[in-house]
Design a protein around this nucleic acid. Structure first.
Length: 506
RNA sequence: GGCCCGUUAGCUCAACAGGUAGAGCAGCGGACUCUUAAUCCGCGGGUUGAAGGUUCGAGUCCUUCACGGGUCACCA
């Protein structure tokens, strides 16, 4: 603490030291309220309704009904607009989901109380007690009899008409975004509903929800660079999980035949409109099924979500309408490349040519194997062109080290990636259950790692040992909740569906 | 990390080609007892993201830096 801080300690001051005239005015009002003995930060408030509940319950009642019944309410909320007209004032009180008008009359609450309202500002959280009526223009309104402070607001709110537009400020001060921009609140309400409905979906089908470690001694379950940290007391390096996969399959070994985790995972990669360093997945595993059954489940799940949340089977996303009607397109990985890249099939089979082509598409790490080259080509030339929900099935086994190989073509995996709107939404496969093969796959990965591929898997012998006890045939899938929310809320950036996306400190 | 764009009053935005920074909302004072982007009259509010440079003069031109957005790279 420097001297300046010490000097100011006796006198309350705001975090921001240089105050605007408006902030000084608010501080003055607060002092006046204190002088009057008014507690602007009380411990609790009684309420009969939230703003949202008032609107929901009384919205459809006629002026006469409201007049007859004399509905008395106590409603907390934030003042978001004031219209003063001499000895009468209208203002709007808002909560997270709605707003309701309040009417204030000097002749009803008395001169002294009416003048006290001059010390109320837009942004203050208050409680209004009064009875409901309709104005001449028909708006449901609370005729105020009593008003109490619940929290004084010391900063002016953003502009009422345009809201908060500055994208950076919207992320850094999400609370302001939520106060000012109802559509932002709606996005996060839908996100919450997606997660709730997903839970319900899996719970109803007999799944158990679990939580597995987020701190891993050895990161695994995906091909990605991890965040590294250190445990002081144990003196060991730890990694933030890149996926819960290997732990969840250990649980299937343990008899949890249907298991899921809504998990936050962390990947130390770039940040863009489809990637945040921490992101949320739903990962689920079901014993005795394979990836074909997972495709059916996935179609069903998305369709249920669309119908229950939006009441529709297709959703507008940007310029496209995305339809979840079954069945969805299924395209083999190589066929998808043929279809969308324009490459001829004899060239696609020319391993050398594909490795060279892939090298021209990426500047960083050069793909050295045929399988990795195809993966790059898919990413660069195909992915963005797939708009409607499409299962891309049977990608190369080499880039799927945790999936069973396909029996007809062992170079391919019994796996699919679900693409839509140019994004990967889900990734699923028939889990590799043979401990000998798993160990061999890990060793292949480790060999690639030694050639400088940081994202390859490590040899996780502890996991292989679990497989040695017997993992039944199992289908497993991960669904990106953030991206799913983007589709369901028509947002182009992942930062719009994460309350506090990672930003550099100011 | 590369490239492009942005950063001006609390907020939303102006300022032609370098010539002493404006408006609306919000705020303050006044009028107004059914307004709803209330209205009317008046007033205050700025280190133009930061630091250098060019110039008689920089919000504007140049350099560097910070943060954000877009895009490419990496990735889901």
């Amino acid at each position: 603490m420097n001297q300046q801080d010490v000097k100011k300690e006796s006198d309350p001051h705001l975090v921001q030291e240089e105050l605007s005239d408006q902030e000084l005015v608010r501080l003055e009002k607060w002092k006046k309220l204190k002088e009057k003995g008014i507690d602007v930060f009380p411990h609790r408030a009684e309420q009969t309704h939230s703003v949202f509940e008032v609107v929901r319950e009384f919205f459809s009642l006629s002026p006469e009904e409201l007049e007859d019944k004399h509905y008395q309410v106590k409603v907390p909320g934030r003042i978001i607009a004031i219209r003063k007209m001499g000895r009468a004032t209208f203002f709007h009180l808002a909560d997270f989901r709605d707003r309701v008008q309040v009417y204030l009359r000097e002749d009803l609450i008395g001169k002294e109380n009416y003048e006290l309202f001059d010390l109320f500002d837009i942004g203050d959280v208050i409680q209004v007690e009064g009875r409901l009526f309709r104005t001449r223009t028909g708006e449901l309104t609370i005729l105020a009899e009593k008003m109490t402070f619940l929290a004084k607001s010391f900063h002016p709110l953003p502009e009422k008409w345009h809201g908060l537009q500055d994208i950076e400020l919207r992320y850094r001060r999400r609370y302001l975004d939520l106060i000012m921009n109802p559509e932002s609140g709606e996005t996060f309400r839908i996100r919450s509903e997606i997660i709730r409905k997903m839970r319900q979906y899996f719970d109803e089908r007999g799944f158990i929800e679990v939580e597995t470690p987020m701190m891993h001694v050895m990161p695994g379950g995906a091909l990605a660079r991890p965040f590294k940290t250190f445990h002081q007391a144990l003196g060991i390096n730890l990694y933030l999980r890149i996926a819960p996969e290997l732990y969840l399959k250990r649980l299937v070994v343990g008899g949890m035949e249907k298991v899921y985790e809504i998990n936050r995972s962390f990947r130390n990669e770039g940040v863009d409109s489809q990637h945040n360093p921490e992101f949320t997945m739903l990962e689920f595993y079901q014993a005795y099924i394979d990836y074909n059954q997972l495709m059916e489940m996935t179609e069903d799940l998305f369709l249920v979500l669309a119908k229950e949340i939006h009441g529709r089977e297709e959703l507008q996303y940007g310029d496209n309408v995305i339809s979840f009607r079954k069945p969805w397109a299924r395209l083999k990985f190589k066929e998808a490349i043929l279809k969308y890249s324009g490459l001829a099939s004899d060239r696609l089979d020319d391993e050398k040519e594909m490795i060279e082509l892939a090298a021209t598409l990426t500047t960083d790490k050069k793909p050295v194997t045929y399988a990795k080259s195809l993966d790059v080509i898919f990413d660069k030339l195909v992915k963005e062109k797939i708009i409607q929900p499409t299962f891309i099935i049977n990608p190369p086994r080499e880039i799927s080290p945790l999936a069973k190989a396909n029996r007809q073509n062992p170079a391919e995996a019994d796996r699919f990636e679900l693409m839509m709107a140019g994004m990967e939404l889900a990734n699923a496969f028939s889990e590799l259950t043979d401990p000998f093969e798993q160990r061999q796959r890990f060793e292949e990965q480790a060999a690639m790692r030694n050639t400088g591929d940081e994202e390859s898997h490590l040899v996780d012998l502890d996991y292989v040992e679990a497989l040695e006890y017997g993992l039944p045939p199992t289908g497993g899938e991960g669904i990106g909740i953030d991206r799913l929310t983007m589709i369901f809320t028509n947002q182009k950036s992942i930062r719009e569906v994460i309350l506090f996306p990672l930003l550099k400190p100011r």
